[in-house]
Design a binder for these strands. Structure first.
Lengths: 211, 211
DNA sequence: ACCTGAACACCGTTCAAGT
DNA sequence: ACCTGAACACCGTTCAAGT
């Protein structure tokens, strides 16, 4: 049930994940699903847990490198699984502490931050910022339109660009020159690497500022 | 109409903003609203525009300081207005380029980044990251529950903490010690200042890494 | 243990019609 | 210019009942 909900979300977006739609796909009555989970929230919890469980962060003992390298590795592992299901990435934020797998990732991140010298409060704030950043990267990747085929996607990008092309080049030179990056992402590897780098660099700066 | 939709969202959350509910508040038929906007998306566009228009970023000429100080000032101004309406902050991300006010903020941010030496593509990616970070800070502020009174909020926090207290201290020492920061935010000023600092520091690092 | 039928209280939206 | 009535195709959810 969780599997087909996730598959549906991947294919047509989170909005398409509806009790009734899901039931139809499974050739069953909508009410039948209520035997398998209490309500829709719990179904979404299940999807989040599924994704979190697929993250492989290795064991703390076998991790190598200084703290920020280990942190980058954990965030990259998280990012990898989120990227597999961009439509449901937004579900994770409020649900990471609800599952064993999510708790393990959180423990690892907070442990590394505390080990780097951050106070528990500071580590907590940085931990949520880390999670938010990774989610935001995959959910808002420019040029990503789940549930649209290639033609629709290109059409959407074209019409957005066309609107901006009507802007005054004198008034909006920077917007116009950066436009391509705002709507499409031709080097996704670099895009995500930059996102992790940005966060790690920020944290390292805060560390040196605090000590 | 936009005003009362925004007021409703502030008071009871974005989910409460429904055509029918809004119509009832305005003592009018649901269908009456369709004379004032084409569909619900356009109403949400209007809310986003309202917030973006209230941002005061000053003029580029009167701005003082080096580029990253100016950038921090612009992001703080954005943050200030988002904080006034946390329930609808998430609307901004996809709508910032739809309004004059949003374009001006974007132009300023991208201009500062390009002026700092980032390529147009890189500036674009950093610009969306900046916006996402600010939105995420206000939308996910720990201990924020729009549409809940003080008693409900405290109850929600208590029950979340209680669940985590059942965890093994051996297995999750970092989670348990950082728990307070994950669920509540007793120093909001510091929380938001840290969010801006974190981003600015990351960008500065990327600048030095690139040059 | 697993599913269905019938019903309820909600959504957004269209379209023709009123003043 | 501004609003209503009636209707349509959707939601999530409950509850009693079936096998």
């Amino acid at each position: 049930v969780v599997s087909s909900a996730l598959a549906l979300a991947d294919k047509e977006g989170l909005d398409a994940v509806t009790i009734r739609r899901l039931a139809a796909d499974l050739r069953v009555t909508p009410m039948a699903l209520y035997w398998h989970f209490e309500d829709k929230e719990r179904l979404l919890d299940g999807i989040a847990e599924r994704i979190l469980s697929s993250i492989d962060i290795g064991s703390p003992q076998q991790a190598t490198g200084v703290w920020h390298e280990q942190l980058a590795a954990v965030l990259s592992a998280l990012l990898e699984q989120l990227r597999a299901h961009p439509a449901v990435a937004e579900l994770i934020h409020t649900r990471i502490l609800l599952s064993e797998a999510g708790l393990q990732v959180t423990e690892r991140v907070l442990g590394l931050l505390q080990g780097a010298g951050f106070s528990p409060v500071m580590a907590g704030q940085l931990g949520v910022a880390a999670l938010s950043s990774m989610i935001q990267l995959v959910a808002n990747e420019p040029g990503l339109y789940v549930g649209a085929d290639q033609a629709e996607k290109e059409q959407a990008i074209r019409s957005k660009k066309a609107r901006l092309h009507e802007l005054s080049p004198q008034k909006y030179p920077a917007v116009l020159s950066s436009m391509d990056a705002l709507f499409d992402c031709d080097d996704t590897r670099n895009y995500f690497a930059m996102g992790v780098d940005l966060f790690i660099a920020g944290v390292r700066h805060l560390q040196s500022a605090a000590s």
